[in-house]
Write a protein that binds this DNA or RNA. Structure first.
Lengths: 213, 213
DNA sequence: ACATATGCGGAACGTCTGTTCTATTCTGCT
DNA sequence: AGCAGAATAGAACAGACGTTCCGCATATGT
């Protein structure tokens, strides 16, 4: 094997990151999804090549039996995640959007969160809340919100909603209704607002809130 | 869980050794075989107890999803703390009070928090919020609050206040005034309440809030 | 151009593995 | 003794997961 193909590099990098973040190795299908590979057989095939090259080892027939080989791998530190702190979120401004290389490159600032708070999810980042406009979501000035970047949401999810006409960012629970969308504050004593579906852009899902007093 | 049973010690030891030796976590049946346990359900049962005790973590529905927890292993992870979860806090009930040995033994569940949230303080414990009565403190049902046990507070601190006459627990900002005490909700749009100094008992100070969605 | 090797796609198979359910035994307490 | 809760057994279920097979596309060498 002369050199690693782009696909193999991606796989190796993903495996390294996965082990570091979660503490256990990824499955073939984890790799398939993350590296956008069309078939598990392709993953298996390339893993075989990587194994022959000494980049990793595989235990036969066991789930998640991948181990980093002699040629790869920083020591793993499970349990804690350094989530990139991308910036601030405020009522009158759109939120910073993660770039493709956000999770790879180094950052000015990170927030440490317990891995349990981000259970399972990938591509989570943090934003610092500025101002008291999110009070109806039970979120105060200075809080840190953990966002999972996604363009759609399930009914009832707390989402980062961008209201195009109003040019306003808000955190609300998402309830699609026919033609429009009901945005319900987490504080159930407060009234929902209704917006046209086309006026709403979902920027992410709120997976956690941290308040440090 | 007063102390680890022999079986639990064996499981924990085996998991540690397995990960160190093989590089990935064991399956439930690996543990069953090695520790001579008769049923996978017993392994599952004990793993659940170990997880609640903070000795390890498990990814749900994932093969070999075990990782060593905050309390386990000599490889203590820097930056993360296992805070004892003493119970629940609700409007109509006093909060559980920590015992002398609370911070030494594995008596109860734990919550992992970033060390930065507990900056310097010792004797911090966690309570799970039941009900929506703390809404005016921007705290919702299901949130986890981190409490520093103390009987007094500085002006402006967010405290756990026990109102003796009303037999009620509440979270408010503490502002002593002559003769009485003003308890100010964190949500500054809401009105404060005033209580007699003798009617108030401070049960602790709120140092952080974690909301996992 | 032909044969060969390499890599990719899609699907299916069989096992591995976590989880759950119910029944039974053990343990501590009154 | 009697009861309640903790712990254990055994089995079965539902997915997760590695592996394999076959067909097809693209290089590579002669």
């Amino acid at each position: 094997m002369k050199e690693l193909s782009p696909k193999q590099k991606a796989i190796l990098k993903y495996v390294q990151g996965f082990i570091e973040k979660k503490g256990f190795p990824p499955s073939v299908r984890d790799i398939q999804g993350a590296c956008k590979i069309s078939s598990t057989s392709v993953v298996d095939y390339n893993l075989g090549l990587l194994e022959r090259g000494g980049f990793l080892r595989r235990a036969a027939e066991v789930a998640r039996g991948i181990t980093l080989g002699a040629k790869a791998g920083p020591p793993q530190r499970p349990g804690i995640l350094a989530v990139p702190l991308l910036g601030a979120i405020a009522a009158g401004a759109p939120i910073p959007v993660p770039e493709a290389d956000t999770w790879r490159s180094a950052h000015e600032e990170t927030v440490e969160v317990p891995e349990a708070m981000v259970r399972g999810k990938d591509e989570v980042y943090a934003l610092r809340v500025k101002g008291t406009s999110m009070i109806d979501a039970l979120i105060n000035d200075g809080d840190t919100v953990l966002i999972h970047f996604q363009k759609s949401a399930d009914r009832g999810d707390m989402v980062v909603a961008w209201l195009k006409d109003e040019k306003e960012t808000t955190l609300k629970k998402y309830y699609p209704e026919d033609g429009r969308v009901r945005l319900q504050p987490a504080n159930s004593t407060m009234k929902p607002i209704y917006v046209d579906r086309n006026n709403l852009e979902i920027l992410g899902r709120v997976v956690g809130v941290i308040r440090d007093l």
